[in-house]
Design a protein around this nucleic acid. Structure first.
Length: 502
RNA sequence: GGCGCUGUGGCCGAGUGGCUAGGCAGAGGUCUGCAAAACCUUUUACAGCGGUUCGAAUCCGCUCAGCGCCUCCA
């Protein structure tokens, strides 16, 4: 029996707003697509939360035994900008400002994005397709939509006919919007005279003469519209119908709604079984976003170099902080919350090193049934919580309970004779795998960890000797001086000394 | 204006009808040469009002407060 049969996963499907049993189209296999970053600027922490959410989703599905293909794109064409009258492309605008080639910018920020993902221990997707690498497919899809009558050409640009689509299907199934209200409300834009209706959206945009990023097409030299890339790249690698499509909440409308319309228009059926949306990061109750200017860059967070931050926080502290809330809730950033997370994370991380040092061959001569049952229940709890819509907050609560038990076993306060060896082994492997493989919380080490470790061990030996000689002046000096450097020595019951780097 | 979300103890944050969330902070204790860590014990809740129910933080209604999307956004 596969683990995913033993612990069936439920997901909140944004399409219906309810939690439902997750059943992949092909048993045992999962296809997942997530809208990746637009690489014209540094990724900020809000982006990180979304990619962390789906990192957890893919990690856990794999952990359960599913074979997962995870596709996350890079948007390197840039989106239409409304404040520029002629529909200027974000990437080309910035290119001119900095006197760089568009491709140069794309490359630079893609690298930066990958660096940040690595720092947070967010695993790379199986395929990371780029919009510019799929122009042919995008043009082909636009042709299909034109053939089927869902699109029309005006002055070299192509638009999707939402009204026509809505008559045959239903536009707005994801966001709960209806077409009449959309037609009435919202702002009117002068540049929209080309469109038949204000809610129509561009599939292909003719480039102005000054526009640098441009490609030939049957309609004009220009560039693709914002939504078409995701439809093309998701269905190319995952099929016309696939399991999970994810992204930030703010993409629900219009981006994902338009994706559904395009794909449904082209194929006649809905592209995605389960839509998942991660919620926003907030600062003082307000959405963290580039445009509001209240967003942190990851490196600002690590160093503390930001007016709103008291100090720096490590990537794993931040990862832990984000996992303490459910992905579907907003999460507010504050120094107090981060400080609490730092301590909590260190506790779990310390237990991770403790559990790895626990002797392998414990024997049990006096097993305590209720204790064994309790420990097994904690193990079950980890699976149960993760399978419940990837509830990392609840899973962490279970890991804290396990941490308490493991520390007690280590110190001897909980005699290991009372625990059956199989139960103890299960406890150990579950703790390690949920921490490292499922939640991706690694132990953080200084870059030159081995050297420092060696040096500290020498000092520990000297301290041990001094304590035996009752030379407390010396032993205290070693401990205090190391503490001043952020290295904490802790005397164990058995005379052994362990340390932690803060 | 339309669509939607949220309001939990000093702070963060799970929980969706009866059963301990958890972390941080606070208090007491055990251990220790003294500490730290660890372990044990412990205080403070469900925005307000009304309703449904044997029973509501959890469902329904109203009020208040805040937020998101509707424009590029994760």
């Amino acid at each position: 029996m596969k683990k995913y049969e033993q612990y069936p996963v439920t997901v909140t499907n944004s399409l219906k707003g309810t939690k439902e049993l997750f059943q992949p189209i092909t048993p045992g296999y999962v296809g997942i697509y997530v809208c990746g970053p637009t690489v014209y600027n540094d990724v900020h922490l809000g982006n990180v939360r979304t990619f962390l959410t789906f990192d957890i989703v893919t990690r856990y599905l794999r952990f359960l035994g599913y074979k997962v293909r995870y596709v996350r794109n890079i948007t390197d064409v840039g989106h239409l900008e409304n404040d520029a009258d002629e529909g200027e492309d974000k990437i080309s605008k910035r290119a001119r400002l900095e006197k760089l080639e568009p491709m140069e910018i794309v490359h630079q920020y893609t690298q930066g994005f990958h660096d940040v993902m690595r720092q947070f221990n967010i695993l790379p997707p199986n395929i990371e397709p780029t919009a510019t690498g799929h122009l042919i497919e995008q043009i082909e899809l636009i042709k299909t939509l034109l053939d089927k009558g869902y699109a029309y050409v005006v002055n070299g640009s192509v638009y999707f006919d939402v009204t026509k689509y809505d008559r045959e299907h239903h536009y707005g199934i994801l966001s709960g919007r209806n077409i009449e209200e959309l037609m009435e409300s919202g702002r009117k834009l002068e540049s929209q005279d080309e469109k038949r209706n204000k809610i129509d959206f561009a599939l292909w945009k003719k480039a102005s003469p000054t526009h640098i990023m441009r490609w030939p097409s049957p309609w004009s030299d220009g560039f693709p519209g914002w939504h078409i890339e995701c439809t093309v790249m998701s269905t190319k690698y995952l099929g016309q119908e696939f399991d999970i499509h994810g992204g930030g909440m703010d993409l629900k409308f219009p981006h994902h709604e338009c994706e559904i319309a395009q794909a449904t228009g082209a194929t006649g059926h809905a592209p995605v079984r389960y839509w998942m949306h991660s919620n926003m990061l907030t600062v003082n109750g307000q959405k963290m976003s580039k445009s509001l200017g209240n967003s942190f860059l990851p490196r600002e967070l690590f160093t503390g170099a930001h007016p709103l931050l008291q100090k720096g926080y490590s990537p794993m502290t931040v990862r832990f902080f984000m996992l303490q809330s459910h992905y579907s809730s907003t999460l507010d950033f504050s120094n107090e919350a981060l400080n609490a997370a730092e301590k909590g994370y260190k506790r779990l991380a310390h237990t991770l090193s403790v559990v790895k040092d626990l002797p392998a061959n414990y024997t049990s001569n006096n097993p305590d049934n209720s204790l064994n049952e309790e420990l097994k229940k904690l193990v079950e709890e980890c699976y149960r919580c993760m399978s419940d819509d990837f509830n990392t907050a609840k899973t962490l609560a279970a890991l804290f309970e396990m941490s308490t038990r493991i520390n007690a076993i280590r110190s001897g306060e909980l005699p290991h004779e009372r625990i059956e060896p199989e139960t103890l082994e299960l406890l150990k492997t579950t703790y390690v795998s949920f921490m490292q493989d499922v939640l991706g919380l690694m132990e953080e080490q200084a870059p030159d960890g081995e050297l420092i470790d060696g040096v500290i061990r020498v000092l520990i030996d000297i301290r041990k000797k001094a304590r035996l000689d009752r030379n407390f002046a010396l032993s205290d000096k070693i401990r205090d001086d190391l503490a001043a450097l952020g290295i904490r020595l802790m005397d164990g019951k058995d005379g052994e000394i362990t340390y932690r780097i803060d």
